[in-house]
Design a protein around this nucleic acid. Structure first.
Lengths: 140, 140
DNA sequence: CAGAATCCACCAGGATACTG
DNA sequence: CAGTATCCTGGTGGATTCTG
């Protein structure tokens, strides 16, 4: 069983972190960017369930929170690249942990979550794409 | 800098985890319960910003997802106690990581988040209580 | 290719009041 | 003490359209 080391705080840091990760696509965006999927059009392709607008909004929030850096090349056609900041990178262990936990408990989670009428499509929507991307994208 | 071990998946497990933790008070609730704050009235006191109704809803979802177990004592007055299931406990490293990350970057985060008009009160609302609870609650 | 402006639907979650 | 019903609103995020 899991042993807690620091029983100090209740949830304050928790809420700050939750704020940063608050948004349907933010963890996924951070994850993707960390894997060198850094251009808007690529991200858009990666998340068929998301609109350009929504992605832009969430990326802007991530940028505003200092997790992501945006580089705009003044060309025609325009080119934009996102990258993780240092603090953004420091978030990756959490993202990875979430990813691994979800994967490790997939069968159970899919069962209990499918009971729930609301989420089904949302969580499923992403999975096919995840198959397609099983090969690490190499861009840039 | 952080080294990624498994560049395999993109975000599928991520979404499952996000689903489970999806809800304003869920991580905080799990955290509290893990620290033996297990009775509804205590939880209610712990989160002044939350209504009984909302807490009930989120607890019921957590229960439905198998993260939490609810024990009802058929007494008068009624007594209810929540506890983490095994899989619920397996979530704690993630919660702790979020907590620690938020704490470690508190000053920075509070700055960048306060730029944002919307969140301010939400994240602040919890903090005073966190002071009061700096001593680990001993109940049950 | 990238982004901004509008419009809008939906639901999470807050307020209130009542029951056991 | 615990739970539920009802009502309501604010914000997220989806669809669409237009510019550079």
């Amino acid at each position: 069983m899991y042993e807690r080391k620091t029983p100090l705080t209740i949830d304050c840091g928790l809420h700050l972190t939750k704020e940063v990760l608050n948004g349907k696509w933010k963890p996924a965006l951070l994850n993707a960017i960390s894997m060198n999927v850094k251009r808007p059009s690529e991200l858009l392709r990666l998340f068929p369930g998301a609109t350009r607008r929504v992605l832009n909004v969430q990326l802007k929030e991530l940028e505003g929170h200092g997790m992501v850096e945006k580089k705009t090349y003044p060309q025609l056609p325009p080119k934009v690249e996102y990258s993780l900041t240092e603090i953004g990178w420091s978030l990756m262990p959490i993202i990875d942990a979430m990813n691994q936990w979800g994967d490790a408990n997939r069968s159970f989670l899919e069962t209990v979550i499918t009971q729930d009428p609301k989420i089904v499509e949302t969580s499923k929507a992403i999975c096919p794409m995840y198959k397609r991307m099983s090969v690490v994208p190499k861009i840039g």
